[in-house]
């Protein structure tokens, strides 16, 4: 009976095991293979060593990604709290309103920001005609790229924060207040630690796509912000240098996994301190 059950379990999951081996694991080996070979298929470190030429690009990507993530966290935390503490129908509506933009193609939404930020766009029209301040140069700046990242990925920060906050045990907050904690202390020692899982997944969901983006930087940053995603995209779509592209992707992948590992380590440590 038990044996039969295990056999059945193996049988129903077999297609997935094959699928995962073929289309999740093998492609990763392909990246490594292309990263460490030249166009003739011989082992070569040329492309990995060429990474040093792109050190500035990689640093800029990480830097802009970090700024966008921090801004998202700061903006999203209060709004998640407001949503989580409002009445059920309001909560439902606000969550829906937060998710709705995610269903609209991000390319077109980013493109629409161009109409807003352009030198003759909405913001500048408002500034010059209503306030009489000369047009500001907004598009094709690094700030515009960060704005695009914050705009596109903000819902990914709000939703996980909201979901931990709705599960939060508010009697703990009351207990802390009863024990004489002022608002700041209650926030620091109860609310913040309890929302760490949401913060961690929010940071992950914003940082990873921000660091690796290429469309946002092309449209809103112009030549002022070429990111690692742009360089990778170029190797595959125009320059046809798959080997260099693969080695850059390899580095990007390692970078992401290291930062994820560090972050999860931090969150685990915090959890232990709590207990």
């Amino acid at each position: 009976m038990e044996k039969q059950k295990t056999f059945a379990a193996k049988l129903v999951s077999a297609p997935y095991v094959f699928w995962a081996a073929l289309f999740i694991i093998t492609p990763l080996f392909m990246v490594v293979y292309y990263a460490f070979t030249d166009s003739l298929g011989a082992f070569s470190l040329k492309n990995i060593l060429a990474i040093s030429d792109y050190a500035g690009t990689i640093l800029l990507s990480v830097w802009l990604g970090l700024i966008a993530t921090v801004i998202c966290l700061v903006i999203a935390y209060p709004i998640a709290f407001i949503i989580a503490t409002s009445s059920a129908p309001v909560q439902r509506t606000l969550v829906m309103l937060t998710m709705l933009p995610m269903w609209m193609n991000f390319l077109i939404r980013t493109y629409s920001w161009m109409s807003i930020l352009e030198d003759t766009g909405f913001i500048n029209m408002f500034l010059t005609k209503v306030l009489g301040i000369g047009p500001l140069h907004l598009i094709n700046t690094r700030a515009a790229v960060v704005l695009g990242m914050v705009y596109n990925f903000l819902p990914y920060m709000i939703l996980p924060l909201y979901s931990v906050m709705t599960k939060m045990d508010y009697s703990l907050v009351e207990a802390a207040q009863d024990l004489g904690g002022n608002k700041l202390i209650v926030f620091k020692s109860v609310v913040l630690p309890l929302s760490i899982p949401g913060i961690v997944s929010g940071i992950t969901m914003v940082f990873v796509p921000s660091v690796s983006t290429f469309y946002i930087s092309q449209k809103l940053g112009g030549t002022s912000a070429t990111l690692i995603g742009d360089v990778i995209e170029m190797q595959f779509q125009t320059a046809n240098n798959y080997h260099l592209g693969a080695s850059l992707s390899f580095i990007l992948m390692i970078l992401i996994f290291i930062s994820l590992a560090i972050m999860h380590k931090f969150s685990d440590d915090d959890g232990e301190v709590l207990i």
């Binding site: 492609p27 990246v31 992950t204 990873v208 796509p209 660091v211 690796s212 290429f214 995603g229 990778i232 995209e233 595959f236 592209g245 693969a246 992707s249 990007l252 992948m253 992401i256 996994f257 994820l260």
Partner: peptide
Amino acid sequence: MNPEIVTGI
């Protein structure tokens, strides 16, 4: 976990 661009390429 992987960036989409890495999955894609």
